[in-house]
């Protein structure tokens, strides 16, 4: 590894000063489970590392009356074990729990998963169905953007070089059931060939407020708006679910984790399984 300058601010104001001077060869370090692999393979060559974990409030998972705030240093295991997240946002809890292994989840963060912006990221489908908001911190202050505008390409997002994600905000939903499923070659330590999150946000089977996101099947994981609209209009039955499966916005590629045809089939199957389960109870 080349020589590095390591910075470890302990307050937001200290961090803001550092961000003001941040150059393009300076990288934010959360759990490091993506970044250290990239450094090892010379994909990135940082001159400076900014460790954000020692800022106390970044580690918090905080519930208010209307929303849940997940700080950027909260680990995947803290998230997967959090009672409120398991209850109200199971697609986030299960997505987090499906990542890597115990050791990876003890270090890796949800915000790191999001900022890495890989099409296979397992927490992203959940963030999409809960309409997450992303709180961005820059030297001049904070702003909030929609998750739907955050990821802009494979490994790309809207963050400018002197911005970081401070937290992810999940509005508390009423009357919901939701779930996440992932298909991988083995249970632990494997990236998804397909991952799916589906949520039902009202109690109506006739006009279901259903939200669907299928990941690892396109450069950017997005909500399946066409399928959602179709189901809202035509109700949730075995037949409409099968039809909706054909409307998923997926254009999978073939790679070592599965062929195009395989991914298409698995995406349909996972979606049908989840949508049917949600419609049942």
């Amino acid at each position: 590894m080349p020589t590095l300058n390591y910075l470890c601010p302990t307050t937001s104001s200290e961090l803001k000063k550092i961000l003001k001077k941040k150059k393009t060869d300076s990288f934010i370090l959360a759990g490091g489970t993506d970044l250290l692999v990239k450094i090892r393979h010379n994909v990135v060559k940082p001159k400076e590392i900014i460790d954000i974990k020692k800022i106390k409030k970044f580690n918090e998972i905080k519930l208010t009356k209307t929303q849940l705030n997940i700080g950027c240093a909260a680990t995947l295991n803290e998230i997967a074990e959090n009672k409120t997240i398991k209850e109200k946002f199971p697609a986030i809890a299960d997505g987090s729990l499906s990542i890597g292994s115990t050791q990876i989840r003890n270090r890796g963060t949800l915000v790191g998963n999001l900022c890495n912006s890989s099409p296979v990221a397992d927490t992203v489908p959940g963030l999409l169905i809960y309409d997450a908001k992303i709180k961005i911190l820059s030297p001049t202050g904070t702003k909030t953007v929609s998750i739907h505008d955050f990821i802009t390409g494979v490994g790309k997002n809207i963050l400018k070089k002197n911005e970081i994600v401070e937290s992810v905000i999940l509005p508390l939903p009423k009357n919901t059931k939701s779930a996440f499923l992932k298909n991988a070659r083995r249970k632990a330590l494997d990236l998804s060939s397909v991952n799916v999150a589906v949520g039902l946000f009202n109690k109506s089977k006739k006009n279901p407020d259903i939200r669907i996101a299928v990941g690892a099947c396109a450069p950017i994981t997005k909500r399946a708006q066409k399928a959602e609209k179709f189901l809202k209009k035509n109700g949730l039955t075995d037949e409409t679910i099968k039809k909706a499966a054909k409307m998923l916005p997926i254009s999978p590629i073939s790679d070592l984790r599965g062929s195009k045809e395989f991914r298409n089939k698995i995406a349909h199957r996972l979606f049908i399984k989840l949508a049917t389960q949600l419609g049942e109870v």
Partner: peptide, 19 residues
């Protein structure tokens, strides 16, 4: 390379020593 950091199992290969 697993070690225990503040009570949790983690990979020592995926961390900088300064951390």
């Amino acid at each position: 390379c697993t070690i225990i950091l503040n009570g949790k199992a983690v990979h020592s290969c995926m961390m900088l020593a300064v951390e």
